[in-house]
Amino acid sequence: MTPSFIVSLKVLIIDVPILFFMGTLIGWTLAKKQFKGRTLVDTLVVLPIVLPPSVLGLYLLMTLSHIPFIRESRILFSFPAAALAPLFPSLPIMIQAAKSGFCSVDEKLEQAARTLGDNELRVFCRVTFPLARSSLMAGLALASMRALGDFGVTLMIAGNIPERTQTLPLYIYSRVESMKFFEANLAALLLTILGIASLSIVKKLEGKHAGLS
């Protein structure tokens, strides 16, 4: 189990910061900026949530194997692909959470900050971000769990290679296939504990958020 746990951990270490920064940036843009094609972007961004992971994985496989640079770098069916795959189903969760968090920040507060001498960056750092923070953290907890638990997309573009691309969910699948239920249950228990822990974080943050408003 340990090698799969390490693979999963490495995936998380890479993906959590990416989820946080990209989700925050895209969520903020969708919440606060008016631009052409916003509705389209808004729809495309949630699409991965409703698509079956195998469909998402297939599209990624087709796309990545046709982009020259990526095709030559051989990242498909290697660790980089295992790190990349979970982002697709989990990033939309983070974007949605960030978007609704930023939308809930009253524009009047940002305007007040502007009249008090703040430029846009300072408004974001001193008002918008602190007020959306609990939504962002709750979104990050959920998105990270989704990334950790990804099965379909990872299988489609990274395969199930022990010690390289075999994450915990894939490990469970392999153990069950070879009838080794004890190890499968152990890994499942670990994931369940992590899931409960992240949900309790979300609950706590939601409670804090409600107290503020």
Partner: peptide, 13 residues
């Protein structure tokens, strides 16, 4: 220019 909003818009945090 100082502005006091109808809703006051005090920073809740």
């Amino acid at each position: 220019i100082g502005l006091v909003f109808q809703e006051l818009a005090l920073f809740p945090h």
